[in-house]
Amino acid sequence: MAVLNVNGKALDHNAEPDTPLLWVLREQLGLTGTKYGCGISQCGSCTVHVDGVATRSCGVPVSAVADKKIVTVEALAANGTLNKIQQAWVALDVPQCGYCQSGMVMAATALLAANPKPTDADIDAAMTNICRCGTYQQVREAIHAAAKA
């Protein structure tokens, strides 16, 4: 049995040390908001925060984050209040199918925490997540809107 610090709680799991963090979150801890999209750190659907840094959880063995603070999309809303990014996402109706949007929201939240007024170029550099529905235009608008909020 090992312990992982997820969303401010110490949670037990029994996954082998080389299990990707993604699958520990999804299958051991029931946090299915973090999505499987590619398994090779490309698409960003599995993005979580590891000590505040947006990280593709499919490429990180759980043993490598044993002493880190992990935050998933389920914990962004504090006491039921959506964070600024989530609010902007809702206000601008960003998601289409929505499958990539957990990762988008996590990446955008980390971006805004590090850079409260990102430029378009900052957004291009930070938001490498793939969306096949093509919500990019709304993603960009929503990040700017959240930065102004």
Binding site: T32, T34, T72, L82, V90, P95, G98, S102
Partner: peptide, 13 residues
């Protein structure tokens, strides 16, 4: 607005 948005930004969907 769409009827299916909020759960898609909170991971609940």
């Amino acid at each position: 607005k769409r009827l299916d948005t909020v759960d898609k930004v909170t991971g609940k969907q």
